[in-house]
Simulated scan of single mutants.
Amino acid sequence: MDNVLVAGGAGYIGSHACKAVSNAGFTPVCFDNLSTGWEDAVKFGPFEQGDLLDRARIDEVIAKHKPIAIMHFAALSQVGESMDDPGLYWRTNVLGSLNLIEAAVDAHINKFIFSSTCATYGDQDNVVLDEDSVQQPINAYGASKRAVENILYDFERRFGLRHVIFRYFNVAGADPEGEVGEFHQPETHLIPLMLDAIDGKRDALTIYGTDYETPDGTCVRDYVHVCDLVDAHLLGMQWLTDGRPSAVFNLGTGSGFSVRDVVDHSKSVTNKEVPIIEGARRAGDCTQLVSGSSKAEAELGWKPTRSNLKSMIGDAWRWHQTGHYSK
Score class of each variant (00 low, 15 high):
residue 216 D to S: 13
residue 226 V to F: 01
residue 138 I to H: 03
residue 35 S to A: 15
residue 49 Q to N: 09
residue 99 N to K: 07
residue 232 A to R: 06
residue 80 G to D: 15
residue 32 D to C: 09
residue 324 H to W: 13
residue 288 Q to T: 06
residue 152 L to Y: 06
residue 289 L to E: 02
residue 147 A to C: 15
residue 215 P to S: 10
residue 220 V to M: 03
residue 99 N to E: 08
residue 81 E to T: 15
residue 39 E to W: 05
residue 279 G to D: 06
residue 323 G to I: 03
residue 235 L to N: 06
residue 186 P to Y: 06
residue 193 L to P: 06
residue 153 Y to V: 15
residue 80 G to P: 06
residue 250 N to K: 08
residue 117 T to K: 08
residue 144 S to H: 00
residue 259 V to L: 10
residue 134 V to K: 12
residue 143 A to T: 08
residue 10 A to K: 09
residue 151 I to A: 14
residue 19 K to V: 02
residue 303 K to N: 13
residue 263 V to S: 07
residue 183 F to V: 00
residue 259 V to E: 02
residue 96 G to S: 10
residue 2 D to I: 08
residue 58 I to S: 08
residue 56 A to F: 00
residue 182 E to G: 02
residue 271 N to Q: 14
residue 113 I to W: 08
residue 260 R to F: 15
residue 64 K to Q: 15
residue 58 I to C: 11
residue 78 Q to T: 15
residue 121 Y to W: 14
residue 289 L to S: 02
residue 196 D to S: 14
residue 305 T to N: 14
residue 95 L to F: 13
residue 86 P to D: 14
residue 3 N to Q: 11
residue 301 G to N: 12
residue 178 G to P: 05
residue 74 A to S: 10
residue 76 L to D: 01
residue 24 A to N: 11
residue 180 V to W: 00
residue 31 F to L: 12
residue 135 Q to V: 01
residue 310 K to N: 14
residue 60 E to A: 09
residue 55 R to Q: 15
residue 103 A to N: 01
residue 127 V to R: 04
residue 134 V to H: 10
residue 223 Y to T: 07
residue 121 Y to D: 07
residue 94 V to W: 03
residue 51 D to N: 13
residue 322 T to E: 13
residue 322 T to H: 13
residue 185 Q to Y: 11
residue 269 V to T: 05
residue 90 W to S: 04
residue 130 D to C: 14
residue 12 Y to E: 07
residue 201 K to L: 14
residue 82 S to R: 01
residue 266 S to C: 11
residue 160 G to R: 12
residue 232 A to F: 02
residue 260 R to A: 09
residue 238 Q to H: 13
residue 17 A to Y: 09
residue 209 G to D: 11
residue 318 R to N: 12
residue 166 F to W: 08
residue 257 F to Q: 06
residue 291 S to V: 02
residue 65 H to K: 14
residue 81 E to N: 14
residue 228 D to E: 08
residue 147 A to R: 00
residue 286 C to A: 13
residue 216 D to T: 03
residue 73 F to R: 02
residue 122 G to F: 06
residue 238 Q to W: 03
residue 308 N to S: 01
residue 301 G to M: 10
residue 244 R to Q: 12
residue 74 A to E: 06
